[in-house]
Amino acid sequence: MIKINELKKSFNNKKVLDGINLDVEQGKITVIIGRSGEGKSVLIKHIIGLLKPDEGNIMLDGEELTAMDEKELNNIRKRFGMLFQGAALFDSMTVAENVGFPLREHTDKHEDEIMDIVRDKLKRVGLVGVEDMMPADLSGGMKKRVGLARAIAMDPEIVLFDEPTTGLDPIMSDSIAHLMLETQKDLKTTYIAITHDIALTYKIADKVAMLHEGRIIETGTVDEIKATINPVLRQFIEGRAEGPIKVY
């Protein structure tokens, strides 16, 4: 269980996060929605310790994640997986080397065993026979799938998704949504995704949180969000340019 308390972060005197409060339930999919540039990526980077907050904290199972040093963080990070927006595959390595990377770094597993896991994870994300390809030869959707396979390679307890469908066509986006649901169901993993893709949110979320002007302005299930009377959230989920959120 992850608890975010009064998290604040500024860059060059510009407030990005202004007191975030959010509970993430274990074994569920939490989706944080919000406009581009609202600090969603900044928030997710705090959860895995890439950024330190100015104020507030993040608790993981009662331990204060935001107060940990690099060594403690590295032990915690082995329980996490992360899928980056552009997949962040290492372009000097093959697909198999990418997916097997965390296993080679952190386990004593034999090479054959690693390859079995790599093939299994790739199969889970619907990829067969791509082991020897280089990331540069893959399409955007395939990169995301390989990124997902790498994120779940160590069977993590928590997986973070940074804009999992950005840049993909609607059909590929739907297939990523299905993969997220399937992989999550199989392993009962905690998934946290940030996105501005409403269709994806409705398909996968157990809980939705709306980030606006540095704060979580509303949380709820998909049905609760759909029925919201909050004008900011309404404008966002309906995708209108007119409303309380000004477009510059």
């Binding site: 082995k78 996490f80 992360m82 927006q85 962040a88 372009d91």
Partner: peptide, 17 residues
């Protein structure tokens, strides 16, 4: 390139310095 495509961040998240 590794920095701007978040590959360096990916190393951190996989607990590799």
């Amino acid at each position: 390139t590794m920095r701007v495509t978040e590959q360096i961040d990916a190393l951190y998240t996989m607990a590799v310095n």
